[in-house]
Computed example of a mutant assay.
Amino acid sequence: MATIRAWPDHLLTLAEWDGLTPVELRRVELAEGVLQVSPRPSSRHQLVGGQLMAALDAALRPAWRAVPEVELTVDAADPPTVRVPDVAVVRAEAVDGRSRLDPADVLAVVEVLSPGSRRTDRITKRAEYSDAGIGHYLIADPGPPAVLTEFRLIDGVLEAVSEQRGSAELDLGAMVALDLDAL
């Protein structure tokens, strides 16, 4: 396994990414071989993500499981892109101890907006998840008031299909009801 002892000065490969040691108090993603480091999410951000994860997990079991902050290889070609969505809804059998998932294992991803991630979540990640063939993308703005924007993959592009406040109804193969006011 490759290790990186100093801050990289080149585009990383997946082997080099695997060799990175965890960066305390930071969130790290790989975008086209470039490390992207941001502060850990706020407690409000984590609470919203956790509540969405619990609701999605309860509604979609046993075939699907909602998991927090799992690595997702959205593009394995060099230079690779590895994202860490706030929540990923994945095939139950994919929750098997792997450190990173493939898009084929993913039904939906959820990103909770933060002050430093709004553009990336709304534009960049939406395009990346589209290209990876992710069927559903949810963007939660914790507000107040909390707003959930739902995107569905239509003809290869994640298109906005709803923006919901108060309560939300999602069709992810099973109906999921969310109380956004309780977030």
Rank of each mutant, 00 (worst) to 15 (best):
R152S: 02
T81D: 07
V34G: 08
D181Q: 03
P68Y: 09
W7P: 03
V176S: 13
T13S: 15
L11G: 11
G50A: 06
V110Q: 01
L20V: 10
E169V: 08
I139P: 01
H45D: 09
P145E: 05
V23M: 11
P142H: 13
G166A: 05
V34Q: 13
L12P: 12
T21V: 01
A2E: 15
D78Q: 08
G133P: 06
A182S: 15
A108Q: 14
A146R: 01
P22K: 02
L183Q: 08
S167I: 06
A59F: 09
A104D: 15
P62Q: 12
L107W: 08
A146T: 09
V109C: 11
L183K: 14
A160L: 07
R122M: 08
P41W: 10
P22Q: 05
Y129E: 05
E29L: 01
T120L: 06
L14V: 14
A54W: 05
R122G: 04
E128Y: 10
V110E: 12
I154A: 14
P22V: 03
R152T: 00
L180M: 09
M175W: 07
P80H: 12
V147D: 00
R152I: 02
Q46V: 03
A182N: 07
L14T: 12
E111F: 01
L180G: 07
A31P: 00
I154G: 09
I4G: 13
F151V: 00
A66H: 10
L25R: 15
V70L: 13
R27P: 14
V161D: 07
I154R: 13
D96F: 12
D171E: 11
H136P: 01
S130F: 05
A15T: 15
S42A: 14
D121R: 02
V109F: 05
D155A: 14
E169A: 02
R61I: 11
A168D: 04
